[in-house]
Amino acid sequence: MTPKDFIPIQEPKMISSGKVTWQSPSNIALVKYWGKKENQIPANPSISFTLNHCKSTTTLKFKKRKKTDDFAFNFFFEGKEKEDFKPKIEKFFERIESYCPYLKEYEFEIYSENSFPHSSGIASSASGMSAIALCLMSLEKELFPEIEEEYFNKKASFLARLGSGSASRSIAGGLVVWGTHENIEGSSDLFGEQFPYKVNKIFKNYQDTILLVDKGEKQVSSTVGHDLMHGHPFAAQRFQQAHDNLSKLVNVLESGDTSEFIKIVESEALSLHAMMMSSQPYFILMKPNTLEIINKIWVFRKETGIPVCFTLDAGANVHVLYPEDQKDNVLEFIKNELVVYCQNGQYICDQVGSGAKIL
C-alpha cells in the first residue's frame, strides 16, 4: 500500500454529530526503533509486545460545522482542559488532513484518561495517539460505511504513526511489527502489522512488570533523541543491528527459546541507550537505580535459572519481562529486592494484551 491509498475518494454520507469511545494500550518494544526519516518513517524496523492494562480511554464528540481554515477542537485530560497538549494534536491534525479531509468540517471535543499514573514514564503517546486515531476512523467509517475492517485497522495505524511513531504498534494485539523487514511478510514503514508467523505459547501471555524508577519529565524528549540519529557515528551499524536482531527473533518466537530471547532483548535495550550516550550532544536517561535493578536481575537470573530479563524505553524505568509460569517467583523477587529502587515503591503489573477495542 502507498499513502495515496488512505485518501478517501468516495462521496461522504452526511453525519451531523456523534460520539465514540476507544480504549487503546501502550506497548513495549523488544527490538527498538530509534531514528526516523521524514513523515514519521522509521529508520529501522521494530517489534513490540502490546500491553494489556496500561491503556488510554478516549472519547471523541464531533459536530458538523461550516468548513473554515482552522481546526476546531478542545482537549480534556482526566476531566480537565489541557491547553498544553493542544499543539501536539494540532500538529497531528495538520499531518493527517490530506488523509482525513473532513477534519475541518467538524468541531471536536476529545476526552482522554490513562489507566497508569501521568508522567510515570510509560509511553502515553503510543496509547493516547492511537486512541485518537481510532476515534477518527470510527467517524470515517460513518462517513464511508463501505470501509472494511482490514483497511480500518491499517489506516488507524497509519494515522497513529503520524502522531507518534510507536502508536502505530498499539492497534493490534500480541506482537506487532512496524517497519519494512525483508524476512517479515507484509511488514511496512507506513503502519504496524501483527507478527504474521508462529508464536510459541510461552510468549502469548508474557508478563511485564514496570518498575517506576523516575516519574519526572525526561531531560531530553524522544523526538530530540530520534533527530540526533542524523549524523550519528554509529547510526548505520545500529540500523543493521536492529534488522539482524529482528531476523533472529523470528526463530526465537517460534521455538520459545527464552535464553536467546533474553540476549536479544537486553542487548536491544542497552544499544538504545548506547546511542543516546554517543550522540552529539550526548545524554543519559538511565538513573543510578536503573543500573542497580539491572544488576540485581542478572544476579537473580544466574542464581535461580529463572528466565527473567529487562528492557528499557527511552527513560529510566525498567520493564521486567518473564513467562507467566514464573509470575509468583518473580513478583516475590521484585517485592523483596527491587521495590526499594522504585520511586515511592511504585510498580505496575502488566502482560501481553489483545489490542485496542471500541467501548
Rank of each mutant, 00 (worst) to 15 (best):
Lys201Val: 14
Gly355Tyr: 10
Lys91Trp: 00
Val177Lys: 06
Gly216Glu: 12
Leu162Arg: 13
Ser255Tyr: 03
Arg169His: 13
Phe85His: 02
Ile334Ser: 09
Lys215Gln: 13
Leu162Asn: 06
Thr180Gly: 02
His243Val: 13
Val252Asp: 04
Asn205His: 07
Phe93Asn: 04
Lys36Ala: 00
Ala123Tyr: 03
Ser168His: 06
Phe239His: 06
Lys13Phe: 02
Ser354Gly: 08
Leu246Asn: 05
Ile293Asp: 14
Asp350Ala: 01
Leu134Ile: 13
Ser267Asn: 14
Pro233Ala: 09
Lys335Leu: 13
Val220Ser: 03
Phe333Glu: 04
Glu94Leu: 07
Asn245Leu: 03
Leu211Arg: 12
Tyr197Arg: 05
Ile28Ala: 02
Phe203Leu: 05
Arg161Glu: 05
Phe73Leu: 09
Ile47Thr: 06
Ala269Gln: 03
Ser46Cys: 03
Ala123Cys: 05
Gly163Phe: 05
Asp69Phe: 11
Phe71Ile: 03
Ser112Tyr: 13
Ile264His: 09
Ser46Arg: 01
Lys32Thr: 00
Met137Ser: 03
Ser259Val: 13
Pro323Ile: 06
Lys19Thr: 08
Asn74His: 15
Ile28Arg: 00
Asp227Lys: 15
Phe6Lys: 08
Thr68Ala: 02
Ser120Asp: 12
Phe73Val: 11
Gln219Gly: 06
Ser278Ala: 06
Met286Phe: 14
Lys204Gln: 15
Ile294Asp: 01
Val20His: 08
Lys80Ser: 14
Asp189Val: 02
Val308Asn: 00
Thr59Val: 02
Phe73Pro: 09
Lys201Pro: 08
Ala356Thr: 02
Tyr341Val: 00
Ala242Thr: 05
Lys263Pro: 15
Thr223Trp: 05
Ser124Phe: 14
Phe93Pro: 03
Asn295Gln: 14
Lys80Val: 14
Ile171Ala: 04
Ala160Gln: 11
Glu148Lys: 15
Val308Gly: 00
Thr50Asp: 01
Thr58Gly: 02
